[in-house]
Simulated scan of single mutants.
Amino acid sequence: MDAVLDTRTPLRAYWLEAKYEFLRLLRTPMFAIPTLMFPTLFYVLFGVLLAGSRGGPGAAQYLLATYGVFGVMGAALFGFGVSVAIERENGYLELKRALPMPRGAYLLAKMAMAMLFSAIISLMLAVLAMTLAGVSLSASQWALLLVVDVAGALPFCAMGLYIGSLVGGSGAPAVVNLAYLPMAFLSGLWMPLQLLPPFFTKLAPVWPAWHLGQLALKVVGRDSGASTLMHVAVLGAITVVFFLLARRRLSR
């Protein structure tokens, strides 16, 4: 692949930046292990072992969709929020600006990293669902679920970028967790919101994770019935707003 891009310098710069960003984080145990293993271990525990004895295939399908979103959130929020905060604090962003590379290569590389990790998480969950939980979906459903997970990383990349532009490297993990874990719970990613008091169901549309979760659940036929266009529009707006806020912060 590198050889193919040798004669096209801008494309080669984008490719190499994305390649080494992915390899850097893949070789960082504090990021790669929790990002890849938490969604899969939780799915084995709740989607395979507990759902098999209580909720059956329906629960396994529901948790396949929602834990995919949970994994995507983690890859994007931590991949952007923590790494950008550390790199900004250490002066790495200033160094990047001084290098003769395309201006967008840094951000596009991190987006590609988050989307690739999201794809790996989605595929790992699909294998577990098929082999251990007995989940049966059509080929188009499996493919669409992968697309939802991978594209769904973008709003959380923007949120993570904004967090990274606000806080320092030492405080970023705590701030990301404060956004990540409560939002996952309040969006019904760990359990259906119908099991919680009605207030939480009414509050759910506030959270971007709920909208992405509903898109994933729509693929397996277990969503609340709201419009696909509405979910996509909300997620698109969140992506643009947080990206612009982060850009304004980082351009100072």
Rank of each mutant, 00 (worst) to 15 (best):
A133Q: 05
V72P: 04
M1S: 14
H211F: 08
I120R: 05
A246S: 05
V48C: 06
P100E: 03
P155N: 03
F42K: 03
G236R: 07
G47Y: 06
P34F: 10
L196F: 14
E17Y: 07
A13D: 05
A85C: 09
G91K: 06
T7K: 11
P102S: 09
G91F: 07
G213H: 00
S140E: 15
G74N: 06
L235A: 08
A60D: 10
P155R: 00
S187D: 10
V48R: 02
Y162W: 11
F42W: 15
L64N: 02
R222C: 10
V240P: 06
T66I: 12
Y180S: 00
A13V: 02
L215S: 04
A75D: 04
P39N: 01
P29V: 04
G134I: 07
T201A: 12
S83L: 07
M115I: 09
S251E: 15
W190I: 10
S83Y: 14
L125Y: 01
A75F: 00
G225V: 08
L26D: 00
V69S: 00
Y67L: 12
R222H: 15
M37W: 13
A151T: 13
A18H: 03
H231S: 13
L132I: 05
A133G: 07
L99N: 08
M111T: 08
V219A: 03
V48Q: 00
Y92E: 11
V4S: 09
L23P: 03
A237Y: 12
A119S: 06
K96G: 10
M130W: 13
A98L: 05
T239Q: 10
E17V: 08
T201R: 14
G221K: 12
A216L: 07
L107K: 01
P198E: 11
A114H: 00
I86A: 09
L63T: 04
I238P: 12
L49T: 12
L77P: 00
L229K: 14
R8V: 15
D2T: 14
H211L: 02
V69H: 00
Y62S: 05
L125V: 11
M183R: 03
F156A: 02
A139T: 08
F185Y: 13
T40P: 04
W142M: 03
D6C: 03
L128F: 15
G236A: 14
E94L: 11
F31C: 02
Y20L: 06
L99P: 03
R247Q: 13
Y20M: 06
F156D: 01
F185M: 13
F200K: 02
Q194G: 15
S140T: 15
A18I: 03
L181A: 07
R249Y: 08
Y106H: 04
L186M: 13
P205C: 01
